[in-house]
């Protein structure tokens, strides 16, 4: 019973936040509502006993990525998206059929998986299970991901370094 109440609270907040992200005119508020959505999703993860995923979700998305987003928006100082409205005028005619297709797709796959997912949801996302899965079954993809991250980091360093030397000259 408590779980059901919590689920609907988090689900409502997630959807509300999501709608506000795209409908609010001030991009800073949009970013803050996106954080609200991310939190609500973390709450739903916890209800599914996926504590590790929930915490990593908060730490990575809310704690790191969205902070940088907020930085960029604040420093660019976009007050309201005045010009942007005009540029994307005809986009909404394309957006409506795309949204309908997306909803149908989601509804179909959700309906297909409904029966099995309810019973199997528990205990997959705990630290112990994710750890043992990462270091046994998925060891190779896990290590390859680390190489990918190192390459990305080195690339970011290289790009910022290059700019620095140009500006000094």
């Amino acid at each position: 019973m408590i779980q059901l109440i919590l689920f609907f609270t988090f689900a409502f907040l997630a959807v509300f936040g999501g709608v506000m992200v795209i409908s609010h005119r001030n991009p800073i508020y949009s970013a803050l509502f996106l954080i609200l959505t991310l939190f609500s999703l973390a709450g739903i993860y916890i209800l599914l006993l996926a504590h590790f995923i929930a915490i990593v979700h908060i730490a990575v998305y809310a704690g790191a990525i969205m902070v940088l987003f907020l930085f960029v928006i604040m420093l660019l100082n976009i007050k309201a998206e005045a010009q942007a409205r005009g540029a994307f005028k005809y986009m909404k005619y394309l957006a409506i059929p795309m949204a309908v297709i997306l909803f149908l797709e989601l509804g179909y796959s959700g309906f297909q998986q409904y029966k099995e997912s309810v019973t199997k949801a528990s205990e997959i996302g705990t630290v112990e299970n994710i750890g043992s899965a990462l270091f046994s079954t998925y060891l190779l993809p896990f290590e390859i991901t680390s190489v990918l991250l190192v390459v990305a980091m080195a690339g970011a360093l290289f790009l910022s370094k290059k700019k620095l030397s140009v500006s000094k000259e």
Binding site: V56, I58, A59, A62
Partner: peptide, 19 residues
């Protein structure tokens, strides 16, 4: 069971208040 990660995750949210 994710105790220490919880602290790191929540502590990283303190940034929002100051920003």
């Amino acid at each position: 069971n994710v105790g220490i990660l919880y602290i790191l995750a929540i502590a990283s949210l303190g940034v929002y208040g100051t920003v």
